[in-house]
Write a protein that binds this DNA or RNA. Sequence first.
DNA 1: GTAGGGTTAG
Length: 653
Amino acid sequence: MLPFLVPQTIKPPSSPPHLLASASARSSPKLPLCSLPSNPSAADKNPQIQSLSQLGNLLQALQVLPLEPNPSQRTYELLILSCTARSSLSDAVRLHRHLSDDGSDQDPFLATKLINMYSQLGSVEDARKVFDETRQRTIYVWNALFRALTTAGEGLEVLHLYRQMNRTGTQSDRFTYTFVLKACVASENLIELLMKGKEIHAHILRHGYETQVHVMTTLVDMYAKFGRVAYADFVFDEMPVRNVVSWSAMIACYAKNGYPFEALELFWEMMLGENESFPNSVTMVSVLQACGALAALEQGKLVHAYILRKGLDSILPVMNSLVAMYGRCGKLEQGQRVFDQMKERDVVAWNSLISMYGIHGFGSKAIRVFEDMIDSGVSPSPISFVSVLGACSHAGHVEEGKILFSSMAKEHGIYPTAEHYACMVDLLGRANRLDEAAKIVQEMRIEPGPLVWGALLGSCRIHCNVDLAERASRRLFELEPTNAGNYVLLADIYARANMWREVNRVKKFLKARALQKVPGRSWIEVKRKIHSFMSVDEFNPHKEQLHALLFKLSTEMKEKGYVPQTNVVLYDLAEEDKERIVLGHSEKLAVAFGLINCNSGEVIRITKNLRLCEDCHLFTKLISKYAEKEILVRDVNRYHHFQNGECSCGDYW
DNA sequence: GTAGGGTTAG
């Protein structure tokens, strides 16, 4: 029996006995130490395993007994692996002492193993000590340290040491490049590290590594994490060899950086183009994300069918993304159905469901799901609270939100982060309890960041509180001097208060710094095709037709009492010009396109990249009544379900 | 002897 080598927590092995019985010590797999106990008969017969048993006992006795006289490299290697498998740092330290005593710690092979061991046991300091004490630093030793430091989030140190390594004349290999590229991402100071990453990119090309698919994929991913989609795109295009991981990295890059349309395009190219890579579960997660971002329900359904056909429906992250996709496409029943069919549900699955109900304004339902989650024995995560507090905010459930917020630390041991405080500020601010919201900011246990001040400024906009808005924006501008959205928000508040001099001052400031607000964009899926609209889009082939229809609708609705909400326009123009501007908003163009192209009875689904403006909201409500159409619009915050002249948000958004 | 892509929110 090997009680020492095999902790109870390690699950029984699935590896066949022949793997364990490998004759060559060097080629034996990593598993055997964990795999031994389930097959005692094999262990009895196998000399290798018998010696493992002795080693186990030996290690157990390390404190009092000496090791065998001259432990071999293989003996030490197995002992190191055993410490890692048992997660015992104290044994690891004792073992390390033995290696130091007989000089084996100077063996670069064992030094590498020691570094890996300490890294996996969570002690990067000890890993570093091993490295510092190793005189013969082979590329394996360097790579092990780079990996350990990157895992511990010490990317800057990796880059510092990488420079040192280059000076000593040690050549990087393909593993080094993947580690140092990852180190660029695993640090804080963004722009400098991007420069460093580009420099390493140049080294890679200079040394002829562009055919190494691991290296190039890591490069794609590094640019993706920096949000440099064009660079990622370029590297991917130039790759001579691609596999499923490279395709997935590029699709994820698009999906995560606001290019969901391109993500879907690449997915179809992967499916239908001439290449030998086929999507797997990881690919599908990003593809579902892209469908959700576009509210592309028909595409999403196709993807769902593919998942079923390929048998990927038992994979938890895939199912979680599927729930989220249906939620974001406005198909609550479908989302709930997928969730109900799941055999196992983790906290992410529950969070997806909570946020699905939350963004649709079903606050009470979201709270109930949150409670069901706890009843089922799943502990909430910080994201669970972001979702459920967001749900309270959208539905105006202030008291429930306050109770949940105070339960975070008390009942669940989760301390509020900036995200949670921002949710509370939003919840109170929206409900016109600005004093309470401001008090939360004042009494926060952490420094209020841009998220929190932004939430406060947003609330000031809803309730037109100029004084508080000026205070919040002052801090916000200090923290995010180049975020044009914040300045636009303040200008909007001034405009609502008819303070045009101040509006112009903010606009001049923006112009002087060449800051531009993100242009409004809307998307609509019609017959599995996605169409995109911008308010200023000279090249849209449907422009004339859509404008004509909108003008006609607007005129008719005015006769029925529609008054255009022109106060959303930040220019001090004649009323007529303001009306023309609001009538050209991207979301109205998408509605008009949907009216022309969707069959009767079909729901119009639109997504927008910004918050819905008051005029588009009112206009769409009226259209839903006069055209007898159900219209779903998801803006950056939540869903609006327009039907028969009403919106599911109850004009509270 | 070591390596690359993914889930929920904002």
